[in-house]
Amino acid sequence: MKVKACRECRTITTKPVCPKCKAALSDDFSGLAIVMDAEGSEIAKVMKITEKGRYALRVR
């Protein structure tokens, strides 16, 4: 299954729609951010991520 990223929340998934926001996905993305503790992470704060998971840095 091809890995894709959500155009809205940048979640990386293999599902046909984004499991978090149900938005459209794109297979043209780059970078990877794995957030394990969204509340305690400064990286998550800057990226405006509130849930743990795998995220793309740039989605086209």
Partner: peptide
Amino acid sequence: IKAVLAPEVLKGYVFVE
């Protein structure tokens, strides 16, 4: 470990928070 970052533009490094 709070987060791990692998930017595509930076080859050969990952950042760990």
